[in-house]
């Protein structure tokens, strides 16, 4: 299976954008080698600002650059971007409705060995709750590149989450075009809908193949925009398959699962099961071991899907 780095895709796309538009500027907080903003820094040193280990100041500086008409991309690890600088993002970026792009690497538990202090499991929730903020979690390197181009052209605050590890490539050779606020149906099926974000999109596709062998046909959706969430697609899926499984490398509260539940509960109640991290922080370990430990594998998705299908009549009685 071909894998590719979202971080590399980010770095490469930034360089392309930098060549096309002199107003693209990039900031980092001493992690430019990891976030790959270093690629931009090498080609455009005068438009790259290393703010040092000072994430709050980095966000404020990015806000100032946006006030003056620049298109700043500010990068660091997800937990430092969204946690350490949350109130700066709230006040100086979201409240001000400024054109700042916060692109964080190292989302989720696949950060691995560094442990829970460095694994952002709440970043999407922290950003999703902010008015004016757009939140995007790309599923592979190809989508990442498209997302970066799209948000550079969009005027407003955006949070993009990528990861430390390489993701399986999904969109190679397709004519997929990312659009803010649009989920993408990757596989059709009538029995159950699996909605996922980030790395979990590929796992959902694997799970769908396994389920198909057992005669269960799944609709698989890449819900790369978490905010604004694609309500139409959620409601359409709810009507079509009567149940939704959400999968995210994030807490089950605040992220994709919550967003889907909010829409379904208010507009078309169907059973929803959320797969993700359950009210706890991450720990050290190799990424693949951690994915198993946190029950975030294709096999886990299969098991949850079957359980949801089996409980459907009971759940429907409950909501009916």
């Amino acid at each position: 299976m071909k894998k590719a780095s979202l971080r590399e895709a980010y770095g490469r796309t930034l360089v392309e954008l930098g060549r096309e538009n002199k107003d693209i500027v990039v900031l980092d907080a001493d992690l430019s080698g990891s976030t790959k903003t270093q690629m931009f820094a090498k080609e455009f040193p005068e438009r790259f600002f290393n703010i040092g280990i000072a994430e709050q100041d980095m966000i404020g500086t990015a806000a100032g650059l946006a006030v003056a008409g620049k298109i700043p991309f500010a990068s660091t690890f997800a937990i430092f971007a969204t946690g350490r600088a949350w109130e700066q993002i709230r006040q100086s970026v979201a409240y001000a409705k400024l054109n700042v792009k916060i692109v964080a690497s190292h989302g989720g538990i696949t950060v691995g060995d560094d442990g829970g202090s460095h694994q952002a499991v709440e970043d999407v929730g922290l950003m999703r709750i902010l008015p004016n903020m757009t939140v995007i979690v790309p599923a592979d390197a190809i989508e990442m590149a498209q997302v970066i181009r799209t948000v550079a052209a969009y005027n407003g605050p955006v949070y993009v989450r990528s990861a430390r590890i390489d993701f399986p490539v999904i969109y190679e050779g397709t004519d997929y075009k990312f659009q803010i606020g649009k989920g993408n149906i990757l596989r059709e099926g009538n029995d159950i809908t699996i909605m996922a974000m980030g790395l979990m999109v590929h796992f959902a596709l694997e799970a769908a193949s396994l389920l198909s062998l057992q005669g269960i046909e799944s609709r698989v959706v890449n819900m790369s925009t978490i905010k604004p969430i694609d309500r139409q697609l959620i409601l359409n899926s709810a009507r079509k398959t009567g149940m939704i499984l959400t999968v995210e490398e994030h807490l089950v509260t605040g992220g994709l699962g919550s967003a889907v539940c909010e829409v379904v509960a208010e507009e078309y109640p169907v059973p929803v099961k959320r797969i993700g991290i359950k009210d706890r922080f991450g720990i050290s370990g190799k990424p693949d071991k951690l994915l198993s430990y946190f029950h975030l594998t294709p096999q886990d998705i299969v098991a949850e899907a079957k359980q949801l299908l089996n409980s459907k009549p009971r759940l429907l009685r409950a909501v009916g």
Partner: peptide
């Protein structure tokens, strides 16, 4: 720029100043 939450104005001033220099 919006202010009120203290401590954030100087960072934004720096951003504007860097842009002006560019």
């Amino acid at each position: 720029v919006p202010t009120g939450s203290l401590g954030q104005g100087l960072s934004m001033a720096n951003g504007i100043a860097l842009a002006a220099r560019l």
